[in-house]
Design a protein around this nucleic acid. Structure first.
Length: 495
RNA sequence: GGCGCGUUGGUGUAACUGGUUAACACGCCGCCCUCUCAAGGCGGAGAGCACGGGUUCGAGUCCCGUACGCGCUACCA
């Protein structure tokens, strides 16, 4: 019943960057919300580079984000013949003309400027049809330019920016077909969008100028003009352009995947960049949205006009990306349903060589409990195999942090005697659990008249090599009696 | 230069068709909790809505101008 069709049309630059990802997301959300179709089209017109590899980066990013498309990917170059035919159709109907100006002359910077400044009328614009034909037949090189009408203006009602008008005089006669026969962007997009029945064009605001040109082409081709919605841009912290060259990996979505982000968390963050659920009852102050809630709340009206800043501190390891994104990821890790979280953690443990199939079998209860312990302090998926390592290895192949050893173990020489004693007490406990371990430890502390805290903190470092972590007796239980005893004895040697 | 667009605390945003001390989240600071670190609870600093005029009993919300920022200005996409 719905004829809503939208598309994401990236040019294959090697990877999906955050701006593109958000454009894709908004298209996807709109399609899902409206029950329409989401189409992926690769705009590879005129790119020399091997498309395959470049395209893979885009597809990888979309797959990770969970933005599934209903049709495509289509490749724009596959339709070059249609684009060319459209150019000739416009030529024949008199809405375009051949421009025989030599390429060099056109490319000359000063001449170009003069043309722009003085709005020189192209000398070939009104060349008689017969002469144009014969010169073309004689093999003279030419481009096909669109013949922008003299009086009037283009207009379209943008879903975000409202009514947009532009006097024809502001639009130059754009090239449709290059002298080597290659169709150009503005023509190709329009022809493809018509062909694919695109009903709504949702794209970056940097295209607003092109839209005026494209409206002209739609009309000349006698096609229905789709609805447009231009998105505000995502800027760098200095409010400048967020670019691949200047900001490197931070703009690539695969960076977030590799940094241990939950895709839904990143999607959630991206959705709030330039859009908000304004006017949605009860959702105005909401920050955390499931995919379903996002789809439900999404409207084009909620998109902002002003650009958003992607806030991060260059060179700051802790705040390497937008702090809100970091916070959101943490929030997801902490609260996501176990059944959704576990499949994301498994590959991380596998990568680190920490995975055991028993975690899904007989050790399942222990495993899930341990994960629930770790998730409270994990900021990324990487932390499970990082800070979590001591929980998953039997031996001592985990790092003893220097500062932790100094602060919690070497702080008091008495620990050299106390730790082995505690090991013995632990070993003697028949029913080893949270409470019995605590009783054993506190009893020892009392007998030796030392603060329980001294033993507690030392034990934490002995068992995990770290100075921070979950409540100690939770750690003790997770590590288990055998490993705890072993590690306490070992720790004494570090003192 | 030309054309277009934008401007609410550091960042992301809210504020019904103009109506009390401009709200929420992240971040920051402090306190509480406490075996550490987080989390959590409580509290705080931080914008008077880019600036200047106007309209109005009353403007962040309407109008005009200025400044600043951004986009576009290819035989790139």
């Amino acid at each position: 019943m719905s004829d809503i069709r939208v598309r994401f049309a990236p040019s294959p630059t090697g990877y999906l960057h955050v701006g593109g990802a958000r454009t894709a997301l908004f298209n996807w959300l709109f399609a899902r919300k409206m029950g329409g179709k989401f189409i992926l089209r690769i705009e590879d017109t005129d790119l020399q580079r091997s498309s395959d590899e470049m395209v893979r980066g885009i597809l990888e990013g979309m797959e990770w984000l969970g933005l599934d498309y209903d049709e495509g990917p289509f490749y724009q170059t596959d339709y070059a013949d249609k684009h060319r035919a459209a150019a000739y159709q416009l030529l024949e109907s008199g809405q375009a003309y051949r421009d025989f100006t030599p390429k060099q002359e056109r490319n000359d910077a000063t001449i170009k400027q003069d043309i722009a400044k003085e709005k020189v009328v192209n000398p070939y614009r009104n060349l008689p049809q017969a002469e144009s034909d014969s010169r073309a037949e004689s093999g003279e090189s030419f481009v096909i330019r669109f013949k922008v009408p003299e009086d009037g203006k283009t207009q379209f009602d943008d879903a975000v920016f409202g009514l947009q008008e532009r006097d024809y005089k502001e639009t130059e006669d754009l090239v449709l077909l290059r002298s080597d026969g290659h169709p150009l962007y503005n023509l190709s997009v329009v022809v493809d969008d018509i062909e694919m029945g695109i009903s709504h064009v949702i794209r970056g605001q940097d295209h607003i100028n092109n839209t005026h040109k494209q409206v002209l082409i739609y009309q000349a081709l006698g096609a229905q003009v789709p609805k447009f919605a231009h998105l505000p841009l995502i800027l760098a912290p200095n409010k400048g352009k967020l670019s691949k060259r200047k900001h490197g990996e931070i703009v690539s979505v695969t960076t977030y995947r590799d940094a241990g982000f939950i895709p839904d968390a990143f999607v959630n963050f991206l959705a709030l960049l330039g859009w908000s659920p304004a006017g949605i009852e009860g959702a105005e102050d909401q920050e955390i949205f499931t995919r379903e809630q996002l789809i439900e709340a999404f409207t084009l009206e909620g998109i902002h006009k002003s650009n958003a800043v992607f806030n991060f501190t260059e060179g700051d390891a802790r705040n390497w990306t937008d702090q809100k994104a970091l916070w959101m990821n943490f929030e997801y890790i902490k609260t996501w349903p176990m059944e959704k979280l576990l499949p994301l953690i498994k590959p991380e443990l596998q990568k680190a060589g920490l995975w055991r199939d028993e975690y899904e079998g007989e050790q399942r209860a222990w495993y899930e409990h341990t994960i629930s312990l770790l998730r409270e302090r994990a900021r990324t998926l990487l932390d499970f195999a990082g800070h979590g390592r001591p929980y998953f290895v039997d031996d001592l192949s985990f790092e003893f942090e220097e500062a932790a050893v100094r602060k919690n173990l070497q702080k008091d020489p008495a620990l050299k005697e106390l730790l082995p004693q505690l090991a013995d007490r632990f070993a003697a406990v028949t029913e080893f659990n949270h409470d019995s371990a605590e009783v054993a430890l506190r009893a020892l502390a009392e007998e030796k008249t030392v603060k329980a805290g001294l033993l507690i903190n030392a034990t934490r470092t002995a068992l995990t090599g770290q100075s921070v972590g979950p409540s100690l007796f939770e750690v003790v239980v997770a590590v288990g009696q055998k490993r705890a005893v072993q590690r306490l004895k070992h720790a004494a040697e570090l003192i």
